[in-house]
Amino acid sequence: MDRRFFLGFILLFFLVGSGHYFLLTQQGLQPAALFFWECYLGNFFFALCLLWALNKAFDRMSHAIAWIYLFASGLKFVLFFLLLQPLFKADGVLSIAERFSFFVPYFTALILETAILINRLNKL
């Protein structure tokens, strides 16, 4: 992975996360109670795994990188659904703030992954 992309990836995640954290505290909500850290760290970790896989595929099986991206993005979504939804639903309510706790880092990671995929495809 290019260092530029990796740094951009960390920076964007940090900026989005900070903004999100700030907004939640401004609203008087407890980020920890909304599984904020679990969502951001989990998404960050899975996005890193996907980027590593894309990087490996670029060298060895370049024809399949789009498939790896599609499969991994889908798997990431399913995994989070299986792991986080029970936590969110433990109190019987799935609030909008809880939904945003998951979807904001998910889409941030997705946009970055897509940008890296496009970059890789253009270099093939």
Binding site: S62, I65, A66, W67, T114, L117, I118, L121, N122, L124
Partner: peptide
């Protein structure tokens, strides 16, 4: 279609 897709096919989708 998808197994034989070239990089241009995928770029048309993602870019």
């Amino acid at each position: 279609t998808n197994v034989t897709g070239t990089k241009d096919y995928w770029l048309h989708i993602f870019d």
